[in-house]
């Protein structure tokens, strides 16, 4: 259903999953998932814990091997490509688990996202324009930032990669509502400026519906429901998420 959304004429969709099966070790976590993200589109991936949302992101980035189906990144089949190759194709990732090098400085954390140190000055400027606090914290160890600051550093680093497709995993988790609103604004601005497509894994429904064009609910490794964004969808989605 979702992958039938027509891609923009000429450009292949930044991300397209067809009938994807994947998981850790012997146990599949995703069972035949199909999902696509069109250029400039933001899709929210919702669902309760343990339903396979992070697994889907890791599979899209080639961190987990594909057990079945196809993943196309910008039209290129990703099977057999290392994450390094996929990142070079324009995929940025803001992970949720162990997302930073806590013992490295903020500057080194950002530096690792760049191909070369030549772009460092421009990249740091760009990051600081979205997140001004970073400018004064470059020499500080990332682990000493507050929880909210760390989340912003994760996002700043992913944006510094100048991705065509951004994968974001639970960026709003544990944040104050004001910070969540800032992050939503930054994601929308990034899309408006650069046309970045995004797949946003979220538990915070209001945040997700606020930034996304479309949403899909993952349940037990399958797409259970999907639809366009909008306030009217809130009740329908909550049915899937609550106890």
């Amino acid at each position: 259903m979702l992958d039938e959304t027509a891609p923009h004429a000429g450009t292949p969709p930044p991300l397209q999953l067809r009938d994807v099966t994947s998981g850790y070790g012997a146990a599949p976590v995703l069972h035949g998932v199909s999902l696509s993200v069109a250029p400039g589109e933001i899709v929210a991936l919702l669902g309760k814990n343990g339903m396979g949302k992070t697994t889907l992101l890791k599979t899209a980035l080639g961190i987990l091997p594909l057990k079945g189906g196809t993943v196309l990144v910008g039209g290129t089949a990703s099977a057999g490509l290392s994450p390094a190759r996929l990142v070079a194709l324009g995929v940025g990732y803001a992970p949720q688990e162990q997302p930073l090098f806590p013992d490295l400085t903020v500057r080194d954390n950002l530096r690792l996202a760049l191909r070369s140190d030549r772009d460092l000055a421009a990249g740091l400027d760009h990051a600081a324009s979205s997140f001004p606090f970073l400018r004064d914290r470059l020499r500080q160890r990332a682990g000493t930032l507050s929880g909210g600051e760390q989340k912003m550093l994760i996002l700043a680093r992913a944006l510094m990669m100048r991705p065509r497709l951004l994968l974001v995993d639970e960026i709003s988790e544990g944040l104050q509502p004001s910070v969540v609103a800032r992050i939503a604004a930054i994601l929308r601005a990034e899309r408006a400026e650069r046309g970045t497509a995004m797949l946003v894994v979220e538990q915070n429904l209001d945040f997700a519906l606020g930034v996304a064009d479309r949403w899909a609910v993952l349940k037990r490794g399958e797409i259970d429901d999907a639809g366009p964004s909008g306030p009217a969808m809130r009740g329908r989605i909550l049915e899937h998420l609550s106890i």
């Binding site: 961190i63 994450p83 990142v87 090098f101 490295l104 690792l112 990669m161």
Partner: peptide
């Protein structure tokens, strides 16, 4: 830069890979 990448691989290889480090 190589040293930084090496330290990143030591500290958290999964994250280093996810950031596109070869």
């Amino acid at each position: 830069r190589l040293g930084l990448k090496a330290r990143a691989v030591i500290m958290n290889e999964a994250l280093a890979r996810a950031l596109g480090i070869d």
